[in-house]
Design a protein around this nucleic acid. Structure first.
Lengths: 136, 136
DNA sequence: TTACTTGCAAATGGTTTGCAAAGGG
DNA sequence: CCCTTTGCAAACCATTTGCAAGTAA
């Protein structure tokens, strides 16, 4: 993270504006409006630079695709295993647990990730509907 | 998961014997001894079949590579961000939190994943040592 | 017998890298 | 000016897929 460029500003703006973690492709789509000549490669390198600088966090989801978000925004999500929709959670009850882990393992804990998986109300409704149709 | 084959038995045995989640490559290495003509593709397909059947769980780590483990073994890990070593945790204090999430979101929760990141005692020691050398 | 499985080889696709040109400080 | 950054194209590499031959039930 040594230099400011319009490309990096566009990338940062895109990630900052998002209300959920974005894929590199999504960042590209959002940033290309602000900087039309942008290359996807540059998005990857800018994101890496921001992660390296500690400004963003990178998580690889179960689909194998990485998402990026502002590091300061410490959030957890509840993800529907059917439609992949994510609901951000407000709670993060782990400070206490982290202290305990430090005592037990000697690690200097720098972060954590937690994700719940399940079926959201809409998908559950559709499944029930489908099952009923199949039974007829 | 419709048929039993020596290949699948070898794959299941490898994952069962492991004390930590394995990559497909690692499963292959372990299973090839029991079944020398095994193909990596077959390992992937067998693992998929077991995951589909609910017998195994698949998680993609931050290096982008998937690990497989027996689904019944519900465990969390503490991972060193420097040497990547993982320490399995004994605790899983989330049943209560899951209930709360069901009430708040209406999701039918089927699972979760939680991972802590930090620096293990050895890496911290090496870092301190290196810093001291740099200062001289 | 007859689907399901396997092995091989090739394709896929998100991500990374080499290199010459562009541009920030 | 120097060194980082960019864009393009090509490489990477874990994983997936097509297909013909093999095999469990």
């Amino acid at each position: 993270m040594q230099r400011q460029t319009p490309q990096r500003r566009a990338v940062l703006a895109a990630v900052s504006a998002a209300k959920a973690p974005l894929t590199a492709e999504q960042v590209y789509s959002a940033a290309v409006c602000a900087f039309p000549h942008l290359a996807l490669t540059t998005v990857y390198r800018s994101l890496d630079a921001y992660v390296e600088a500690g400004l963003m966090r990178r998580s690889i989801y179960d689909d194998g695709i990485a998402r990026y978000e502002i590091a300061a925004e410490h959030r957890h999500f509840l993800t529907c295993t059917i439609c992949k929709k994510s609901v951000p959670l407000s709670v993060c009850p782990f400070e206490q647990l982290e202290e305990q882990l430090v005592r037990e393992t000697g690690f200097q804990i720098s972060g954590h990730r937690m994700e719940f998986f399940g079926v959201c109300p809409e998908c559950a409704g559709k499944q029930a509907q489908k099952k009923q149709e199949d039974d007829e």
